[in-house]
Design a protein around this nucleic acid. Sequence first.
DNA 1: TACGCAATAGCCCGAACGGGTTATTTTAAT
DNA 2: ATTAAAATAACCCGTTCGGGCTATTGCGTA
Lengths: 209, 209
Amino acid sequence: MSISIGIVEDHSEFRQSLVYLISSFSDYTVSWAYPSVEEALENYTETDVILLDINLPGLSGIEAIPLFKQECPDLKIVMLTILEDDYNILEAIKNGADGYILKKSTPVKILDAIQQVYDGGAALTPMVARQVMAFLKPEATKTESQAHLTPREKEILVLITQGMTNEVMAVKLFISVQTVHNHIKNIYDKLQVHSRAQVVVKAFKEKLI
Amino acid sequence: MSISIGIVEDHSEFRQSLVYLISSFSDYTVSWAYPSVEEALENYTETDVILLDINLPGLSGIEAIPLFKQECPDLKIVMLTILEDDYNILEAIKNGADGYILKKSTPVKILDAIQQVYDGGAALTPMVARQVMAFLKPEATKTESQAHLTPREKEILVLITQGMTNEVMAVKLFISVQTVHNHIKNIYDKLQVHSRAQVVVKAFKEKLI
DNA sequence: TACGCAATAGCCCGAACGGGTTATTTTAAT
DNA sequence: ATTAAAATAACCCGTTCGGGCTATTGCGTA
C-alpha cells in the first residue's frame, strides 16, 4: 500500500507541482491538497503524512500542527518553508513537526523527507539540523549515576533497551551470542535483576539511559 | 582543491574500507587514518573533516571532540557509531560534533555527510534527527499516541514493568496464564512491539507509566 | 611479575516467552 | 435487540532467555 499524503500550500502553482511530483510515483498517493489550514481541516481525511507550508493566510502552518496531530496522533508532518530561520524551526519542533525542509529542495529530497518521517525518523535539511543542534548545546549536564557497569556492558544495556535480541546484538557488535549472554548476565548481577524487562525499568529509573 | 579528511576508527577492516571509499573520489582526500585518538593527536595534521568513531579503546570519540576542535576550531567532526542512543547523541552534540551517522550507512550517505558538514550544515540520520528534536520538545507537547489500551491491558502493562512473569501475574489477577498471555499479545499489537523489554521502554517513553 | 578485571567464547538445560488460532462469556453501546 | 468490544481460556510450537559453569586473552597496576 502506498503512503498517503495531504498538502497544505497556498501558492497554487507550487501546490500543483507537488501534487504532480508526488503522484508520479506509485509509492505515494496525494489524498488531498488545499490552499489553507481551514479548508484542510474541514475536509480532513486521514493520511500518513502532511506537507504543511509555514506561511499561510489565516491559520499558520505552525499553529496547524497540533490541530492535525489531534486528529491523528500517528500522523507525520513535514514543514515546507522558504527560510531556515531560527524562530520558526524551534516553534515547529515544539509543536510536533517531524520534518522541516525548504521549498527549493530538489524533488528527490522532498520524497526522501516523506519517506523518512513515514519510517519514524525526522527530516531536516543540514542547515536546519545545525541550528537544532545549536539549541541543545547550552544544556546542563545530567546526573551521571554510579553504575559500576563497564563500557561494553553499558553499550549492551542500551541495545537491550532498544528491544534487540541477543543474536542481533551479537551481529551488531561483532561478537558471539554467548559473549552477549555473558555481558547480560554480568549486568543482571550488578543491577540485581533477573530479566530484560526489569533491567529496562532499572535503566530508566536510574537514568542510566 | 579537494576536501581533506582524517579518520579515527579502531576496527581496521572498516577503517580501510573508509579510506578506500573516500579515496576513490577526487573531491576527497584521506590525509590520515588511525585506530585511536591518541595516535591521531600525536601525528595530527590539519584536515577539513574528521570521521570519528564513538567507541574507541582509550579516549572515546566523544572525549576526543574538544581535543580536536582546539587544534583547529573550523574543523568539522562527523561521529561514526553503530548505535543511535540518546546519551551519546546528546553528549556528542554538546561536545561540538557536526554530524552523527551510522557505520552501516551507505557510502553515498557517508560522503553526503562529509560534504554537508564541510558546507557548514549538520549531518544527522533521520532517527538521530528525531531524537535531537525530541530533546527540544517540551514534555507537555509529547502527546504520545496514548494507545487505546483497555483497562485490563494497562493493568498488565504495569505489572510487566514491575518485572513480573506471566504466571505471577495470573495468580495476582485471579486469571489463567493463558489469559495473561493473550492480554500481552494484544498489548504488543497495539504498541507495535515484540518483547517485554520493548514494551517497558515504550511504556516509559510514552509516559503510559 | 603477579594479580585483577574486562572482554571474549563455549557448553548445558529447563523455564519462559512470543506467535498463531479459536472460542465462550460478559459488558457496553447503538 | 443487535452489534461491538473486552475479558476470559485453551492449544500448539518453536525460539529465546536466564542461570550455572569453565576458560582464554589482553590490559593495566600494584
